[in-house]
Amino acid sequence: MTDTLAAYSLLLAYSAMAVYAIAFVMYVLDLSRRTGTAEAAAVARTPASTTAAAGARGGTALLERVGTITSRVAESQSRSVNKATRFQRTAFALTIVAAVVHLGAIVLRGLAADRGPWANMYEFSLTGTGIIVVVFVVINLWRDVKFLGAYITGFVVLLLGLAVTNFYVAVTPTPPPLQSYWLYIHISVAMLATGFYAVGGGLSIVQLLQSAREKGRLAKWRFLQTFPSSASLEVMASRLIIVGFAFWTFTLMAGAIWAYHAWGRYWGWDTKEVWTFIIWVVFAGYIHARATRGWRGTRSAWLAIIGLAAVLFNFTIVNLFFQGLHAYSGLTTS
């Protein structure tokens, strides 16, 4: 029964990957469509201004009327730039479908293991990517950040593909130190924090691109005209990162308590503990710098991206190449 449930879980994981990949293509087509719409709006504004200038120089009433009509057309096209395209609506619907299939894979893996499905690298990848997508979908109830869809689905397809091809292991008994209710508390909150960090980091990446466009660079990336301003992106990113930081702080504290119950000490300078603390310091520095030093714009965005890179390093390199008490990847013996 265990092997059967695990096999169905893996099948659903592959299915979710396929749907995410289709959604990714739809999001890219949406960006392409927005590029064309932005170019059309830019072209439409040019004759409007030219015609209006001709009218100001004493042109005929017909020219003035044509200028008014052209101006209205330009305004209508400009408003349409920011509307959701059918590609984006389709992509977001597919993202939700994929998330449901993904959730099924997580549940079946948990049933197969008879525990929380995050005791090794494969399970953590499976569940963590699912949480990232859920966070992304829920955030859209607060702010429309569907323009991050290509980033989120591409990121998830990459991590899920890495998990099923390189990290997959059969269901095994839980190691003694993990046989604790802290497995559910500590790890689940860490993954939730990672979800907020991932979306916040994506907003920071877009912020850098938008800032470059606003300064006259990346002028050919016209789809950025349909995104919020760099200032708005920074505000959204900072709020999500603050939420992620709160969850990460709890993760650090819960990990120390769990370490005391498992190994008889709160802190032991284990590699995983050190990198968890480094991530906390980076994002604490991000929040502190914005609050007291007035770090705004590109500097704060780079700090957020460095923090996200540290999270990914902690999950991949530290788990795969460093030995320690937290060596539970399932790929090597501890």
Rank of each mutant, 00 (worst) to 15 (best):
A284P: 11
M121T: 10
G307K: 06
I279P: 06
T316C: 05
A256T: 08
A18N: 07
R72M: 15
R45Q: 10
A259F: 07
A84E: 11
Y181R: 05
S125Q: 03
L29M: 12
A93K: 08
Y122L: 15
I287C: 07
L11T: 07
F245R: 00
L331T: 07
A327Q: 10
G161D: 10
R57M: 07
T174K: 05
G264H: 05
G67Q: 03
F313S: 05
I96M: 12
A284L: 04
L312P: 00
N314K: 11
F315Q: 08
A98S: 04
A291H: 11
A54Y: 12
M191W: 10
S188H: 04
S49L: 09
R293L: 01
V164Y: 06
D30M: 01
I242E: 11
A74K: 01
L320N: 00
A56D: 06
S78L: 08
R109L: 09
I287A: 13
S49E: 15
F147S: 12
A56W: 04
G216S: 02
Y14D: 11
A42C: 05
Y20V: 13
G161P: 15
G59H: 00
S238K: 15
F283G: 04
H326I: 08
F247A: 15
Q179T: 11
I106G: 01
E214Y: 02
L31P: 08
V133M: 14
Q323E: 11
V281E: 10
G285V: 03
V101F: 00
A254S: 11
V133T: 12
R143T: 02
W275E: 01
F313M: 01
S232W: 01
A310I: 12
D270E: 00
E214T: 08
M1L: 06
T271W: 14
P175K: 08
E64V: 13
S32N: 12
M253F: 14
R45I: 03
N319R: 02
A7R: 10
L29S: 02
W118P: 15
V107S: 07
H288P: 03
I306P: 09
A93M: 09
V137R: 00
W302S: 11
R239N: 11
V19C: 06
M191A: 09
I187H: 04
A246Y: 13
T2W: 15
L312Q: 10
F223G: 02
Y181W: 08
A18H: 00
S329Y: 14
I241L: 10
S238V: 15
